Amino acid sequence: MRKPTILCAIEGMFDAWSLSLMGFWVACVGGDRIIDAQAAYFAGQNVTELAFITDGDTAGYDAAVATIRNCESLGIVVNIVPLGAGMDDPDALRRAGRGEEMVQMIERRMNSGEYLARLATSYASEDPPNIRGLRRISAAASQLTPVSMRKWVDYRGSLSVPVHNETTALRMLASLSEAGFDFESAAKRVMEQTGYEFTMQG
């Protein structure tokens, strides 16, 4: 049932029921993310903004990035509500009489632009940097709505997020070639640094 709150999307029927009992408008997604077909359905129902509740672990990060990409590209502003590591899910919180904690987390939801910037900072600080993760974030960021894009740009700058696109990868490849690297060595280095792969066809 549609309610006068932001749409909250979450995996798990019991968690969805619990959020509904707390007064939220809820969508139960079948998997750990909102897939493109679900995003298209939401857009068709005139959903312009939603809160996606996900786990605060590696699987949750991947699900959040995929959800952001699928929804924001269709004009749906996504906000992320990450559950802390080891934190009880909404159903457990409600049954324990701690539903207000979940309500407060949803109220403090994080816009996807800020979420991507903070996640990118975390990936960049890994040793070695998580290039695959950074590339996925860059791809998702290119699909952001104007509202989320503004947040992405602001936080990307303040957090010094390293962002590579095809232009910067090509520039690096050219610079390495001019410095005397053969193509294979230059392309390998570019791949390691940016995640972009270049090949030469004869």
Results as ranks from 00 to 15, higher is better:
residue 168 T to H: 14
residue 68 I to A: 00
residue 174 A to T: 11
residue 37 A to S: 05
residue 184 E to L: 05
residue 184 E to I: 04
residue 19 L to W: 06
residue 181 F to Q: 10
residue 93 L to T: 04
residue 21 L to C: 03
residue 101 E to N: 02
residue 58 T to W: 06
residue 135 R to V: 06
residue 111 N to R: 15
residue 142 S to T: 05
residue 94 R to L: 08
residue 168 T to K: 15
residue 74 L to T: 02
residue 63 A to K: 05
residue 28 C to W: 10
residue 108 R to T: 01
residue 18 S to P: 14
residue 131 I to N: 08
residue 133 G to Y: 08
residue 78 V to T: 04
residue 8 C to P: 13
residue 10 I to W: 04
residue 115 Y to P: 05
residue 72 E to H: 04
residue 194 T to S: 14
residue 40 A to W: 03
residue 193 Q to H: 08
residue 77 V to Y: 02
residue 164 H to Q: 06
residue 5 T to I: 14
residue 15 D to T: 09
residue 86 G to C: 10
residue 81 V to R: 05
residue 159 L to H: 11
residue 68 I to Q: 00
residue 73 S to P: 04
residue 34 I to K: 00
residue 165 N to D: 14
residue 50 L to E: 00
residue 96 A to E: 12
residue 186 A to K: 14
residue 80 I to P: 01
residue 78 V to Q: 00
residue 191 M to K: 08
residue 166 E to F: 15
residue 191 M to C: 08
residue 182 D to Y: 13
residue 13 M to S: 10
residue 49 E to S: 12
residue 117 A to I: 10
residue 195 G to F: 07
residue 96 A to N: 13
residue 30 G to C: 03
residue 114 E to C: 07
residue 29 V to N: 07
residue 137 I to K: 09
residue 189 R to W: 05
residue 101 E to M: 05
residue 55 D to I: 14
residue 172 M to L: 15
residue 64 A to R: 01
residue 191 M to H: 10
residue 64 A to K: 01
residue 173 L to E: 07
residue 84 G to E: 06
residue 195 G to E: 07
residue 139 A to D: 01
residue 87 M to N: 12
residue 112 S to E: 00
residue 13 M to N: 12
residue 92 A to F: 12
residue 66 A to P: 02
residue 55 D to A: 12
residue 134 L to P: 11
residue 36 D to E: 08
residue 68 I to V: 11
residue 91 D to G: 03
residue 152 W to N: 13
residue 40 A to R: 11
residue 75 G to M: 01
residue 134 L to I: 03
residue 37 A to I: 00
residue 121 T to P: 01
residue 43 A to E: 01
residue 37 A to P: 06
residue 143 Q to L: 02
residue 27 A to Q: 10
residue 193 Q to K: 15
residue 27 A to P: 03
residue 89 D to S: 07
residue 195 G to R: 07
residue 58 T to C: 08
residue 32 D to S: 10
residue 122 S to G: 06
residue 77 V to G: 02
residue 162 P to N: 07
residue 199 T to P: 12
residue 88 D to W: 12
residue 55 D to K: 10
residue 121 T to Q: 09
residue 75 G to K: 05
residue 111 N to A: 14
residue 162 P to W: 09
residue 126 E to Y: 11
residue 166 E to I: 15
residue 69 R to L: 01
residue 146 P to G: 00
residue 43 A to D: 01
residue 50 L to S: 02
residue 16 A to N: 05
residue 115 Y to E: 08
residue 124 A to W: 09
residue 93 L to R: 04
residue 180 G to F: 12
residue 111 N to P: 15
residue 186 A to G: 07
residue 141 A to E: 04
residue 46 N to Q: 10
residue 198 F to G: 04
residue 152 W to A: 13
residue 145 T to L: 05
residue 194 T to I: 15
residue 135 R to G: 08
residue 169 A to D: 02
residue 26 V to R: 14
residue 39 A to L: 00
residue 100 E to R: 15
residue 68 I to G: 00
residue 24 F to C: 13
